[in-house]
């Protein structure tokens, strides 16, 4: 695979900042994997949590968010790396706000489902 062109622009950032950026990417990747694992776990281990159709849709939404998050985290890593190479300000990202909203929503939805089930 060809190296993206931006890898040749600017200067190589301090490897410590690059590694920190990589760890941030990996943390988001683990979040994505947790969403995937959560989707399958809810489907398999809590089949009574909601009517089948609703359960499958909720789990599928979690899995799709996991896939999108994997792509977004790569893009975010690349943008941060580019900014560091060119000594620019780190780009603003809606990722944190978005994931906060998504995780809170998931928490509320599943809490309500558990309460309704009782």
């Amino acid at each position: 695979m060809r190296e993206p062109a931006w890898r040749r622009t600017g200067k190589t950032p301090d490897y410590r900042f690059s590694l920190a950026n990589e760890r941030t990417f990996l943390a988001w990747v683990r979040t994505a994997l947790a969403l995937l694992a959560g989707a399958v776990a809810i489907d398999q281990l809590a089949p009574e949590i909601a009517p089948p159709v609703i359960r499958i849709i909720l789990c599928m939404v979690l899995a799709v968010i996991g896939a999108v998050l994997a792509i977004v985290s790569y893009r975010r890593w690349a943008h941060q790396e580019q900014a560091m190479r060119n000594d620019e300000e780190l780009p603003h990202s809606w990722l944190m706000l978005g994931m906060t909203v998504i995780v809170s929503l998931a928490g509320i939805i599943f809490a309500v489902l558990i309460m309704v089930k009782r």
């Binding site: 995937l36 899995a63 996991g66 896939a67």
Partner: peptide
């Protein structure tokens, strides 16, 4: 991970 999500 995208492939794993598709499998999921």
């Amino acid at each position: 991970i995208v492939a794993l999500a598709a499998a999921t």
